[in-house]
């Protein structure tokens, strides 16, 4: 009798089981809630990224998983004779370096232009204008149109024989000969940057407009009472309060531009003579069309440091204020 009572007490003292405790513990509950998100990140982000980096260290080709070759896709020296050595891998591949330079140029110019035009449009649309709602919708149009469709439209606009721009300028008597938009390397680069800016401005403009509308009007009233002019209000009220949203929008804008593929591929396919290849298009050409998966993956992997640098610059450059990170500003 006594024994059985003791046993019952022992059972009662063990309390809820492990499973019940895990289900009720606040920290474990947080873990359970985070698990689906973590699984998605691992499956769709970490795994492809890891696979890409692994492929860059192999000689994989289409249908062939390849074997580990170390850094040969990045650097390899091969000699054909005493004075006839070549550096292979990306390091010795001038088309790759050309694409790196072009990607940086394309991203820098297009991002700066998108920011300047986007901010200007956002400030304009933040005022009380007639047909404001319609204007905001119209501004979004380039972003709504599928990229490939807008790329095809630009391909026609830039056509060597049927360009509407050349036709108009010829009719106006301003030029004698059609502009070679896509056949000349520099014309082609500027033409693609224009198309990218046209497409990317709405994203910047509308996001900054949303940011502008969060600025409390009382701050402007206070600034006005202090005698601030329009520029001073922008410089000391609007811009500082916009920096968090600028950081986010420009980070995304730079990332989208750096990894641009569709516009380039639909309009020039990297031509003429590789003059408009970006790292993304060159990677695709080498891996999927050329069949050299390892080399294509190496080009993609080489994009990672640039993208990380872009994120760091915008994050630490524009989000350095403590209050933006939830602390008081001193």
């Amino acid at each position: 009798m006594t024994d059985s009572t003791l046993r019952r007490s022992a059972v009662a003292m063990t309390g809820p089981g492990l499973w019940t405790r895990l289900n009720n513990d606040r920290n474990w509950l947080g873990f359970w809630f985070m698990l689906p998100a973590a699984a998605i990140l691992v499956l769709f982000l970490t795994y492809p990224l890891g696979l890409g980096i692994w492929l860059s260290l192999t000689d994989a080709s289409i249908g062939n998983p390849g074997k580990f070759v170390g850094i040969l896709n990045f650097y390899e020296k091969e000699c054909y004779g005493p004075d006839d050595c070549e550096i292979y891998g990306l390091f010795g591949d001038h088309v790759f370096w050309q694409s790196v330079w072009q990607t940086i140029f394309y991203t820098t110019v297009a991002s700066v232009a998108k920011f300047a035009i986007g901010l200007y449009l956002a400030l304009l649309l933040n005022n009380h204008l007639p047909f404001k709602a319609i204007l905001r919708a119209v501004i979004l149009l380039p972003f709504i149109v599928p990229t490939v469709l807008s790329a095809i439209a630009f391909w026609w606009i830039y056509d060597a024989q049927f360009s509407i721009i050349s036709w108009s300028l010829t009719k106006l008597g301003l030029i004698d000969q059609y502009i070679d938009f896509l056949g000349d390397p520099w014309n082609a680069r500027w033409s693609l940057i224009f198309a990218n800016v046209w497409r990317g401005v709405p994203f910047v403009a509308i996001t900054l407009l949303a940011g502008l509308q969060t600025v409390p009007p009382s701050l402007y009233e206070a600034a006005t009472l202090d005698g601030a002019g329009r520029w001073q209000m922008f410089r000391h009220v609007t811009f500082p309060l916009l920096t968090p949203i600028i950081a986010v929008v420009m980070t995304f804008s730079v990332l989208f531009t750096f990894t641009d593929f569709q516009l380039i591929w639909a309009i020039t396919r990297g031509g003429p003579a590789n003059a408009t290849h970006l790292m993304a298009t060159l990677s695709y050409q080498r891996a999927i069309l050329g069949g050299n998966m390892g080399e294509g993956a190496a080009i993609s992997t080489a994009m990672i440091p640039f993208l990380l640098a872009a994120i760091m610059v915008s994050w630490f450059g524009l989000q350095r204020r403590k209050w933006q990170q939830g602390e008081s500003d001193d």
Binding site: Y158, D159, A160, Q161, F162, Q177, Y178, D180, F181, L182, G183, D184, A188, T268, R269, G271, P272, A273
Partner: peptide
């Protein structure tokens, strides 16, 4: 050649020929 052939793709010459360019 007519200017611009460095940017031509597979459809460009068809268009230009049929248009009498």
């Amino acid at each position: 050649f007519i200017p611009g052939t460095a940017s031509w793709n597979d459809g460009s010459n068809n268009k230009a020929f049929l248009a009498g360019e």
